[in-house]
Design a binder for these strands. Structure first.
Lengths: 168, 168
DNA sequence: ATTTATTTTCACATTTTTTTGAAACTTCAG
DNA sequence: CTGAAGTTTCAAAAAAATGTGAAAATAAAT
C-alpha cells in the first residue's frame, strides 16, 4: 500500500472510530491528519486535505487545542498559523484520559453522591434497590478514578507493558 | 430527596452521560430504569415511565439484550413479557468492556496492522512519521487489550480495590 | 492610517441520528 | 380455526448534531 492511500484510510477510519466514542468525526480526522504529518500544517491545508470548510476546521482545531492535543506553531517569516499534534501516543492517551475523567467521571461521581442518600422507608425494596445501585456505581466510579490516576502517574510503564506483569 | 425525584434524576443524567460515550440516550435511560427497578417491568411500563413510543422501547430493549445487559423474564400466568437488568455493577462493567473491546478495539488493531507496512522510501520523513504513529497506536491498542483482559479476569478484585494495591 | 492577509464567529443549511406510529406479524386462549 | 393481546418492523417525521460560508474581527504590512 502506498503512503497516500494508507494516510487516507487512517484518517477516515480514525474519524469513524471517533464517532463511536462520542467524538466528532471531523475533529478525529483533523487529529489523525496532524498525527501523521511530519511537518506543522495550516488550516488551508486541512481544508484541502479533508474537503471541509474553513469554519469547520477552525472550530475543531480550537477544540483540539482545548484538549491539549494540538498546538499552534509560529513559523518565522510566515504570516499564517501552523498547527502540530503531540506525537507521543502515551502522552496523547494520558491527556485524553485526564480530560475525560475531569469532564465526565468527576461530575458523575458528584451526582451519584447526591443521589446516594434519599428519604424514605429503608425497608422498601425500591428504596433499597436504588440505594444499592447508586452506591455501587459510585464505588465503581471512585475505583476507576483511582486506577486511572495510577495509570496516568505510571507513565510509559503501562504503555510498555511493565504494569501488566504486576497485574498477573 | 424523595425516591421518585432521585430516580428521575438518575435516569435523565444517565442518559446524558451515555450520549457522551456514544450510547443512545434512550438506551441508557431504559438501562437506568431497569437498574433501579426492584422488580422486572414491561415495555408498557417503560413507555409510560420514560414517555417514549412503543417502537423506541422495543428497539432499544433488544439492543440492550444484545449487549447482555438485560434479560427477558417470563412470569407464570402472565401474557406480557417482563424485563430485568443485571444488577451486579461489576458484571455490567465487564460486559460493556468485553463488548466494546470486541466491537471497536479489535477491529482497530486489525486496521492498524494493515496500515503498518507501507511501500516507499524508508528515508522519507513522511513515511517515517506515518509508520511510527501507526505502529505506536497499535502497540497502545494491544497493551490496552491485554490490560482489559487482565481486568476482566480479575473480576471483583479491580472493583474492590485490591488491584490498585498491586499498582502502587 | 489604510490596505491586505488571516482568523473567528455564528445564523442558517445540511446531514445524521433518533423517534414515532401504524401495519404486519406472532402467539396463545377459547 | 378465530380473534384478541402482545411484539416487531420500518418508512416517514422529528430532533440533534455537524458543517458551511460570508461577514466581522483581528493582526500585520505598507
Amino acid at each position: 500500500m502506498k503512503l497516500a492511500e494508507a494516510k487516507q484510510q487512517f484518517i477516515s477510519s480514525w474519524g469513524a472510530f471517533g464517532t463511536q466514542w462520542g467524538i466528532n468525526r471531523t475533529m478525529a480526522q483533523i487529529h489523525a491528519l496532524l498525527l501523521v504529518s511530519a511537518q506543522p500544517i495550516t488550516q488551508d491545508e486541512m481544508m484541502e486535505e479533508l474537503s471541509i470548510s474553513r469554519g469547520n476546521v477552525n472550530m475543531n482545531i480550537r477544540e483540539l487545542i482545548g484538549w491539549g492535543l494540538v498546538d499552534r506553531v509560529i513559523i518565522a517569516g510566515e504570516r499564517k498559523e501552523y498547527f502540530t499534534a503531540e506525537k507521543d501516543i502515551w502522552k496523547v492517551a494520558t491527556k485524553i484520559i485526564k480530560e475525560r475523567k475531569k469532564r465526565e467521571l468527576d461530575p458523575m461521581i458528584k451526582l451519584l453522591s447526591q443521589l446516594e442518600h434519599i428519604e424514605g422507608d429503608k425497608k422498601d425494596k425500591e428504596v433499597q434497590q436504588f440505594t444499592q445501585v447508586v452506591g455501587s456505581i459510585k464505588k465503581l466510579g471512585l475505583q476507576a478514578d483511582k486506577t486511572l490516576d495510577v495509570m496516568i502517574k505510571a507513565e510509559e510503564n503501562w504503555f510498555t507493558g511493565s504494569i501488566l506483569k504486576m497485574l498477573k
